[in-house]
Amino acid sequence: NLYFQGLKYMVPGARVTRGLDWKWRDQDGSPQGEGTVTGELHNGWIDVTWDAGGSNSYRMGAEGKFDLKLAP
């Protein structure tokens, strides 16, 4: 699974964008943008601060869902 392989790169400072299971509307800005991981992966959740200004926790394994992917 590509998403599980990418988890080791989901570290503080990593750049991310919305992924396969995104369901959080425009939390990442409008139009959709990139963000920066600000915390360690914990119980399948990870913290992100978006360039647009907001921050929140997103699923990276929790509930079998992956809200994020590494930015290109």
Rank of each mutant, 00 (worst) to 15 (best):
S57H: 10
M60I: 05
S30K: 13
G39F: 05
D51Y: 02
Q27I: 05
P72D: 13
L20K: 13
S55L: 09
T49N: 09
G29F: 05
D67W: 02
Q5S: 12
G61L: 02
G33I: 04
K65S: 09
Y58N: 01
M60K: 00
M10G: 03
K65P: 01
T36F: 05
G54T: 10
P31C: 13
W22G: 03
D26E: 11
H42G: 07
H42V: 14
G53M: 03
G53T: 02
P12L: 13
Y58M: 03
T38P: 00
A71T: 10
K65A: 13
L68S: 01
F66W: 12
G35D: 01
G54D: 08
L20I: 13
R25Y: 12
W50I: 00
N56E: 07
P31G: 08
T49C: 15
D28R: 03
L70C: 13
E63C: 15
V16N: 00
G33N: 06
P12Q: 09
F4D: 15
G44D: 01
G64E: 06
R15N: 01
G13D: 01
S57P: 05
K23W: 06
A14P: 01
M10R: 05
M10Q: 03
R15Y: 02
G53R: 01
E34L: 15
F66T: 04
P31K: 07
K8M: 12
H42Y: 13
G61R: 03
S57F: 09
G13I: 03
R15F: 03
Q32G: 14
V48G: 00
L41F: 09
D28H: 04
L20H: 13
V48D: 00
G44W: 05
G29H: 05
N56P: 02
P31L: 08
F66G: 01
K8I: 13
S30A: 11
G19C: 09
P12M: 13
T49M: 12
V48L: 00
G64F: 07
K8W: 10
V37M: 03
Q27R: 05
G44Q: 02
P31D: 08
K23T: 09
T38S: 10
S57D: 03
V48C: 02
E34Q: 13
F4P: 15
T17P: 02
K65H: 06
V11P: 05
N43P: 03
I46N: 00
K65E: 04
G54I: 11
G13C: 10
G61V: 02
P12S: 09
T49I: 12
M60C: 09
M60H: 05
W50F: 02
N1G: 11
L7H: 09
D47F: 14
E40V: 13
L70E: 04
T17H: 07
L7M: 13
R25K: 14
Y58A: 02
V16R: 00
